[in-house]
Design a protein around this nucleic acid. Sequence first.
DNA 1: TGTGCCGCTTGATCTAGATCAAAGGATGGT
DNA 2: ACCATCCTTTGATCTAGATCAAGCGGCACA
Lengths: 239, 239
Amino acid sequence: MRKRNACTICAVRQKALCRGLPEDQQGRLNRTAYHRHYDAGRFISGADQRQDWFATVLSGVIKLTKSLPDGRQQIVGLLFPADFLGRPFRGRSPFTAEAATAVELCCLDRCHFEDLLQKTPGLSQLFLERTLDEVDAAREWMFLLGRKTAEEKVASLILLVARRLRRAGADGGAERPAVHWDFPLSRTEMAEYLGLRIETVSRQIRALRSAGAIEVAEGRAIIVRDLAALERMAQKECE
Amino acid sequence: MRKRNACTICAVRQKALCRGLPEDQQGRLNRTAYHRHYDAGRFISGADQRQDWFATVLSGVIKLTKSLPDGRQQIVGLLFPADFLGRPFRGRSPFTAEAATAVELCCLDRCHFEDLLQKTPGLSQLFLERTLDEVDAAREWMFLLGRKTAEEKVASLILLVARRLRRAGADGGAERPAVHWDFPLSRTEMAEYLGLRIETVSRQIRALRSAGAIEVAEGRAIIVRDLAALERMAQKECE
DNA sequence: TGTGCCGCTTGATCTAGATCAAAGGATGGT
DNA sequence: ACCATCCTTTGATCTAGATCAAGCGGCACA
């Protein structure tokens, strides 16, 4: 029962890939899709390790990382609600996926999804558009990593997260970015995404705080006090 | 005449996107596809500027860049022979394309290509796979930009170019990377791709040279003397 | 009520790579 | 043949951010 109409009550329904499926296909989907939960910090899927399922993120944030034996690690992507996890047409992904926060996934068998992709032009078209957007986003981040200062990097990251969480509906769709929310990344993770060290991130957050752009509240909450100032500090160049 | 069977004599035929088209479609393609030439350094298509055609690179190397009004510039991608240029389903690309070397393109109307993409599952499947590979490559480069040292960056770039040019058939398909070829990027461009300054690139090339990994010949030629050493210096982590 | 751990901040110092400066080669035009 | 320009190298110095080193506060566990 609950399972029959899971799609119709799904929070990310209008934003996720499933939008590319005709109504009747969604019904069939219901019968095979299943949910998974991961606590913050848990390993989800591994670099160079077979993964025989794909998923849509229902809630939470996932980080994609690459690391070297010598300990160097870099976050190469973040997945927010409605984003897709997995690497079709290739058994293994070159990156590791880990839950940055508690995560809820809606999963599908690899072969089932690849099958759907073949048979449903609307779906594969949508998937292609998403993937093209991801290339663009990755390239924007390359600019950040290669050319921005530490302060710009941190400001850009806060803006990125604010925008993405807003899009995910975390603040009920207000027309301006969420100003107050629990930041989904630890200082260490911020550093790993920005190509910085944790101490530098900490100092730059202090700088943004004294500039009045943001405020740091209890827990991991970050409050955007002055959006325009934050955008200025990000060099108006985030995403 | 020449145009009729242009596809059948095309150098990148087996590697380019066109492979995703059935034979008879390739014939139709011939009638509308046309070639373009750009000299080294020429502007090809602009950030946020309408581009109503797509292209396959026949020869040469294209750089995709993003730059800020304050002069900071970053190369966010390189296109080699058989690669695809353009951004379907969105009028404008957020990046600028420029010829790094002399470039030959095989072009197609935007609407014609998007039409083909809709109608030809094989083509859109292939295009999707290519795009997924591009995301992976961009993320690998994010690791390089965020975590590698200057020396590792330069070594990685030389390896990347060697491999891509080999794949493009520049050395007739030898089973090891090309050891001798004209490097397609200037020092400035290398720096722009690596998130470094030109002086640093120059010094690191000197370092690789004194380590015996490479040799710099007249013109822009780079000779890979010791592939294993070069790979070691790239932290075995290039692409 | 301790105590040990973890994530974060803050300060002091160090260094890889940036910046500043100058001086070769190449190459093309006259 | 000469000059101008551009690309590259090399040297000297500077600095943003890394590294080293405490210290602090919250939280879990005994």
